[in-house]
Design a protein around this nucleic acid. Structure first.
Lengths: 117, 117
DNA sequence: ACGCGTTATATTTTGTCAAATATAACGCTT
DNA sequence: AAGCGTTATATTTGACAAAATATAACGCGT
């Protein structure tokens, strides 16, 4: 997995659900699934095991009212996966939130970076 | 530990340093140290062990150019701890960043909440 | 000198989580 | 019906993190 740039990475925390309900890792996975049409290929691109990716997908699907990822097995291509409309919406909103958050905190963030060892 | 309110909790991630360089937990610890003048008392109020609190303080102190917490042992009161000027600054900036981030992401955040199971 | 409450640190134990491994199920193509 | 690449799931193993426990060090009071 490539080193993330040193930037603010907001993580969504919900009252129930674990402390890592949704964050940059899951968002990135969604992006790669949308781009590749395959959980396995997306996982490979991110340098993570298929098992782990599938666990993340399952966790996300269980967290919302409807699944974010629709997967099919078998068929000519062996199967595949794609984002549901809800999945697209969640990803879009999270991406916009992350951008807005970074923009709103830029000055303090830059100041903090200078205080680091 | 008390259940956190369902709100966005930005966490600062730096290139080196672990994935949890600084976040809501450490900020809250700083606040309680500043308020009580004692690592031990602060830890007790947060329902965490002194050991864990001390680990967090050490990690924070090592992350920045100068310590965020200055602690003294012995003396009439047994000892104590307080925030350094740098500690006050870091806490103030983080608090402001968290507020700004929440304000900037409010609409999408509210929309996402409605999509939860 | 002793006690007190705190900070500081090491050691052991426990629990949890990630990784690895293995196998099954699926449905289209040939 | 056999093969393929994918999704789906269980099981085991190992690594790491958290917790618990224990002890030391400190410096000012009494």
């Amino acid at each position: 997995m490539a080193r993330p740039a040193p930037q603010l990475q907001p993580r969504l925390r919900f009252p129930h659900a674990g402390p890592d309900a949704f964050g940059p890792g899951k968002a990135e996975l969604l992006r790669h699934i949308a781009a590749t049409g395959s959980i396995r290929t997306a996982a490979a691109e991110l340098g993570m095991s298929y098992n782990r990716a599938w666990q993340l997908v399952t966790a996300m699907n269980a967290l919302f009212r409807q699944p974010l990822v629709a997967a099919a097995r078998g068929g000519g291509t062996g199967g595949g996966a794609a984002l549901t409309p809800l999945g697209e919406e969640v990803l879009a909103r999270y991406t916009r939130m992350a951008d807005a958050c970074r923009a709103a905190t830029r000055p303090d963030w830059a100041a903090l970076l200078r205080l680091l060892k």
